[in-house]
Nucleic acid binder design. Structure first.
Lengths: 201, 201
DNA sequence: GCGACCTCATGACATCTGTCATGGAGAACT
DNA sequence: AGTTCTCCATGACAGATGTCATGAGGTCGC
């Protein structure tokens, strides 16, 4: 019997996934959590075999949870399910030791199968997401450029970005200018959206 | 027996919700759809009592589907479920004749209860979303301002907005300036995000 | 050690944006 | 008919932004 921890902030979906997984004879949902922190706390107590975690949660995101889980509970395999599959998340997730990565558009059969796969040490990444990630390519942005561009995402003016990044406004402009060039955008806002779509920030 | 049409692009969730609803003795999921167009087509054939529709779908959004359904099948009550409850959607949905509006964070009990409520002609709006919608207030933007601000959402430069809106760049700047003032933002990108968050565009 | 790269910074310049004043056309209301 | 509003436009100006040249320090691999 594979013991599963389920984390998703949407009760409806969490409950529903639990119901589906419980239909399988060899799967058992032993715990549920509505936030990332709760998932971690519960996992420490329950020590599940597999953790199925939603990417978007109010506090910690799924990848952060996966990272902590990988350190604290190496015996627990983590897989991520998500509504909005963006390639950047996939890369981050794999780097965090996640073994399975699925969009919520898959059928419940696939979900159950992947739970079994990761439990036996295998990996599974949704083919469509994998293709997207490959086609998106690696980020051409330097770490600093990515930082600054991320702060630009919300539309803040340069002075505020400079304050938040503890940089001089001139430097911020340079990074943004470089990022705009690399993304082929016509201003930093477009560049920020583009980079976000690619999962670079 | 209440006959239900379920539309959601995420198979996992759709299947799961179907399973949950089917557990109730008086509810029956008679059809499922993965897109808005499919939902409409199916509804015409199946003529369900209640349509439970996801707000976000690849083609038509839930509100558009609801609008068409209200015209074509007055006997069918529509309710919307959504992951990201933004007040603007709620207002649009109610205007489109939607009888129930729920975030996916509710429990399955609530879902089933609301299905029954809307079927008997009642209405139900999630209290938290309703409160948010009230606090967001009505849009102070003129229709034109809203149009232009919407085009600004993607970070396009003013010239492009002007072209897309068939306006002169100067006029676009005026509208944006006015919108920035009304939203209290410090530039149009912030204003656009703000207005989007309020459901004004 | 050397070259290649990233980080951080400054200054100068052209351009883009936000703001304001102004005005005409048309619709809606009194 | 007059008032008031939105819609559209123009022009002018200050300040924000994008671009470029330049340079000093740091790290990394060879």
């Amino acid at each position: 019997m594979i013991r599963i921890l389920l984390a998703d902030d949407e009760h409806l979906i969490r409950g529903a996934m639990a119901a589906l997984l419980s239909l399988e004879d060899d799967l058992e949902v032993v715990a549920q959590a509505a936030t990332g922190a709760e998932a971690l706390a519960t996992a420490r107590v329950v020590r599940p075999d597999v953790a199925v975690i939603d990417l978007q949660m109010p506090d910690l995101d799924g990848v952060s949870v996966a990272q902590s889980l990988a350190l604290e509970l190496p015996s627990c395999s983590t897989m991520i399910v998500t509504s909005h599959g963006r390639p950047g998340h996939l890369k981050r997730a794999l780097a965090a030791g996640v073994r399975g990565f699925l969009p919520k558009t898959v059928s419940s059969d696939v979900l159950a199968t992947v739970v079994r796969t990761v439990h036996t040490g295998g990996r599974y990444v949704d083919p469509a997401l994998a293709a997207e990630a490959i086609s998106a390519g690696d980020s051409p942005l330097t770490p600093r450029e990515a930082d600054v561009l991320e702060l630009a995402l919300e539309g803040a003016p340069i002075d505020e970005i400079a304050r938040r990044a503890s940089l001089s406004p001139g430097t911020v402009r340079n990074y943004l200018s470089s990022a705009v060039g690399k993304t082929g955008a016509s201003n930093r806002h477009e560049a920020a959206r583009f980079a976000r779509a690619r999962g670079w920030i």
